[in-house]
């Protein structure tokens, strides 16, 4: 399983696409928002948590269909399915690789973009915390969506339609956590809920995703 993880990481880094693309997209989205909304810093700092979270979510979405599609096309997914490790483990590792290549860079880049959007300094820590807690859920849920649509020709659009409603709770609690942090309110409840969703998704969705993959590989 470790070998699988490092293989996926190596592929992502060397192929160039996944690693930088999501991050660049995140950057562009956050830079574009002030042009749309206007440079009023009060407004920007108010909407910054939402923008950063929606941006992170879309950046995640961008690279989802690559989780399984490439391996499905060249047949290595069939090999992985017949390999001695359980398919659930394969899914978990794929999601972990996706998180390390898209989620983690987003978490690290978020404070810089937070400065651009005038996010309250008190909220910086909460922003990083919320993204660190929330983005693994985005990767796992995305892996589930990718597993559902892996065999389809026009899967990309369908994938976003399936996955975005599933992202709703994570987005809501994540943005709420940052907004409360910025306003100096109690943040315990959204933190716990966010962590709970992520843990629950990591625990259960690999099984659903593996079931979907088995159907698609039949």
């Amino acid at each position: 399983m470790i070998a699988l993880l490092s293989r996926d990481l190596a592929l992502a880094v060397r192929a160039g696409g996944g690693f930088g693309l999501g991050l660049a997209f995140f950057l562009i989205v956050t830079v574009l928002v002030p042009f749309g909304v206007g440079p009023d810093s009060a407004i920007l700092s108010k909407i910054a948590p939402g923008i950063l979270w929606v941006g992170a979510l879309l950046a995640c979405l961008l690279s989802l269909d690559r989780i399984f599609a490439l391996d499905f096309e060249d047949g290595s997914l069939d090999l992985l399915a017949t390999a001695p490790i359980p398919l659930e483990g394969v899914v978990a590792m794929k999601a972990a690789a996706h998180w390390l290549t898209t989620g983690l860079p987003l978490v690290l880049a978020a404070p810089v973009l937070g400065v651009l959007l005038n996010l309250a300094p008190a909220a910086m820590g909460w922003l990083v915390l919320s993204l660190a807690l929330g983005t693994p859920a985005l990767s796992v849920i995305g892996a589930f969506g990718a597993a559902l649509t892996v065999g389809l020709k026009r899967g990309g659009l369908l994938l976003s339609l399936l996955v975005l409603p599933l992202y709703m709770p994570t987005l809501l609690f994540g943005a709420e956590l940052v907004a409360r942090g910025a306003a100096g309110l109690a943040t315990m409840v959204p933190t716990l809920m966010l962590a709970g969703i992520t843990l629950g998704a990591c625990a259960l969705l690999p099984f659903a995703a593996a079931a979907a993959l088995r159907v698609n590989l039949r």
């Binding site: 409603p165 599933l166 709770p169 979907a212």
Partner: peptide, 20 residues
């Protein structure tokens, strides 16, 4: 599979927006 996962998330969303 989608219906089962969706049911869980629909319930989750219901309580999430309540909080929100």
């Amino acid at each position: 599979v989608l219906c089962m996962v969706g049911s869980v998330f629909a319930l989750l969303s219901r309580y999430a927006v309540n909080f929100w």
